[in-house]
Amino acid sequence: MATFVLVHGGGHGGWCWGRLAPLLRAAGHDVHTPTLTGLGDRAHLVRPGIDLDHHISDILAVLEFEGLSDVILVGHSYGGMVITGVADRAPGRIRHLVYLDAASPADGQSLTDIAPALMEFARSTIREVDGAELVLWPVPEMGRLYGVTDPDDLEWMQNRLTPHPLETFVQPLLLINEAAMRKIPRTDVVCISELSAIEGAKEGRSDGAQRVWEIETGHDLMITEPEAVAEMLLKVAAL
């Protein structure tokens, strides 16, 4: 049995793994799908000061309080920023890193550095609520950004998206244990459809990855192709 921790991307929550997680559990694996502070079912906790470090701490707390080790840590989109930070802070708990069409930062990079086109769009959506700058407000055209085109999928997703704290996107990731983190085996799953929200992150995405697998679908691959993604993750679990 493998232990998976699945970390969602911007504007999403643990809900986005609702089609993928059952497939991994049916294969006998332990699966955790935490929601980052200020998003999804934790949107009521949004406030000024929620940054990338805060989200890294969210996942570190899951590892600590659930007593998890030998973890296959999976990040989607912005979640790639988070899992890189988690692996840097707790490399001894991580067995494998999987980047699902995700940002892969170097030391000192923010999502703004990696995906400037996405960030230009995000900044165009800024609204301030109680002192917190929020972006990616859920509007109908967000389906195109996330690569979801099926009407039923769009409706299911649209009702669950929440705005995202801007500070998490603009804070640089500072690595403190990079040498150990870079030794962790890594697999990248890259969406090759034109429907990708993080096109600017594809350059250099395979740096350090032992495997780079491609999938013909849009950016929210866990929603549009859960069976194919599960098949890839089960291959990682079998390594």
Rank of each mutant, 00 (worst) to 15 (best):
W213G: 11
I223L: 14
G218M: 07
H219Q: 04
A228K: 11
G208W: 12
G204E: 09
G200D: 05
A201F: 04
A201K: 13
G208V: 09
I215T: 00
R205V: 13
W213F: 10
A209I: 07
K235S: 11
A238L: 14
A201E: 06
G208T: 11
Q210A: 15
M232F: 02
M232D: 04
G208I: 10
W213P: 04
R205L: 13
V212I: 07
E216T: 04
V229C: 06
D220S: 14
D207L: 08
M222N: 13
R205I: 12
G218R: 01
A237V: 11
A209C: 15
P226G: 08
E231G: 14
E199F: 03
A230S: 15
V229H: 05
A237W: 10
E231A: 15
Q210D: 15
E203P: 00
A209D: 09
E225H: 09
E216W: 04
W213T: 08
L234M: 14
G200Q: 06
V229Y: 02
L234F: 01
A201L: 03
V212F: 07
L239S: 14
E225N: 09
L239N: 12
S206C: 04
T217Q: 01
A201V: 10
M232K: 15
K202R: 13
L234S: 10
S206V: 02
L239W: 15
K235G: 09
L221V: 06
Q210R: 12
T224A: 07
E216C: 08
E203V: 06
K235N: 13
W213K: 14
L221Y: 03
T224M: 03
R205D: 01
V236C: 14
L234Q: 07
L221T: 00
I198E: 08
L234D: 08
H219C: 11
M232N: 05
G218C: 05
G200K: 07
A238P: 14
T224D: 06
D220N: 06
V212A: 00
L233G: 03
A230Q: 06
A201R: 03
E199K: 09
L233V: 13
V212H: 00
V229E: 04
E216F: 12
I223E: 11
V229K: 08
E199L: 04
K202C: 00
D220I: 05
E214P: 00
A237P: 15
E214N: 11
R211Y: 11
E216L: 12
A237K: 14
I198L: 13
Q210H: 07
